[in-house]
């Protein structure tokens, strides 16, 4: 028996691993309503690809290359943009062809960035969100298995494992084991599931607060209203201690406050995480609340122009 030949692209990818994770933990000083409650936010856009998705995308891509599944095939996935951009950056560097199914109504910057990085974009129905993109990707992988390897971030354990192995550990260490609450929105649910599981292993008293958009339609790109959307396979409903709802309107208001009071120019979904953290802080007398800011405002010019004229 001979050992399998390693895909040489794996070595290239491994050289990029330093661009993933170890993001700054930012003290949110002015938005916390209680002196005894500390709020911290991971600035997740400070990675390759400019979002939290560097973590799962790198892990998913690396696993796919290591398994040999991408020999002679294109990486295929459905994405609302950020995972796609992260795949595209790592893949461009390692010479891996990428095809993405993305809803037609994704922001113009995202589509432009993806095209610039050489991604083959398949635009899917604007009425069906990423649920529709997943259907198209699945169909393509089924009809052309020799051409595509569908990695499916919504079902891929490498998604939440990236957060289990890294984000959760970083939060534990960076707060010097003081973290009492972790607050994060649900999209693919990878961030919440992986980070939450790891934090509970460190200290089962840490409270895990999941956030969802209050309404089926919302302006929080990246979040899922699980009642009306397809629930990702990797979601584990036993992980959250509590689930709270956040409105788009309160997130837009927070986006403005974060810019003026904290110097943080962030995306609507990052602002929604801050809304969740601040609302929780109002109910506590003391604690160390940590959330993640998935991306900054760069890719949301239409919203920013309206909110911050």
């Amino acid at each position: 028996m001979t050992a399998p030949i390693l895909d040489p692209r794996l070595a290239t990818l491994d050289e990029l691993r330093w661009h993933v994770g170890n993001t700054p933990l930012h003290p949110v000083r002015h938005l916390s309503p209680k002196p005894g409650v500390e709020i911290y936010a991971k600035l997740e856009w400070q990675q390759f690809g400019g979002s939290v998705k560097a973590r799962p995308a790198f892990n998913i891509l690396r696993n796919a290359v290591a398994s040999g599944a991408l020999r002679g095939r294109r990486l295929l996935d459905a994405s609302s943009g950020n995972t796609g951009i992260a795949y595209a950056i790592f893949a461009a560097s390692a010479g891996i062809p990428v095809t993405l199914c993305i809803p037609e109504n994704a922001s113009k910057e995202r589509k432009h960035i993806l095209k610039s990085l050489g991604v083959d974009l398949i635009l899917t129905s604007p009425f069906e969100s990423t649920d529709g993109s997943q259907d198209v990707a699945r169909e393509l992988a089924h009809s052309q298995p020799d051409k595509y390897h569908y990695v499916d971030q919504y079902s891929n354990d490498a998604n939440w494992m990236a957060h289990y192995n890294h984000t959760g550990v970083e939060l534990w260490e960076e707060t010097h084991h003081r973290i009492t609450h972790f607050v994060a929105g649900l999209g693919t649910t990878g961030t919440f599931t992986g980070t939450g599981r790891r934090l509970k292993e460190f200290n089962e008293d840490i409270q895990l607060v999941a956030l969802q958009p209050e309404t089926a339609l919302h302006g929080l790109e990246g979040w899922k209203h699980l009642e009306t959307a397809r629930v990702p396979k990797i979601f584990d409903a036993t992980v959250p201690d509590e689930t709270r709802l956040v409105t788009t309107e309160s997130s837009y208001a927070m986006l403005k406050r974060a810019a003026k009071e904290e110097g943080l120019l962030i995306s609507p979904s990052s602002a929604a995480n801050l809304v969740g953290a601040v609302q929780l802080a109002e109910e506590l007398d003391e604690g160390v609340i940590v959330t993640v800011l998935a991306d900054d405002a760069t890719k949301y010019s239409d919203v920013i122009e309206r909110l911050l004229p």
């Binding site: 998705k53 609302s80 950020n82 995972t83 990423t130 994060a184 790109e221 998935a294």
Partner: peptide, 11 residues
């Protein structure tokens, strides 16, 4: 007339 939803995926 069409109502267009925001994108869901993300986090």
């Amino acid at each position: 007339v069409s109502i267009i939803p925001a994108i869901a995926g993300g986090l």
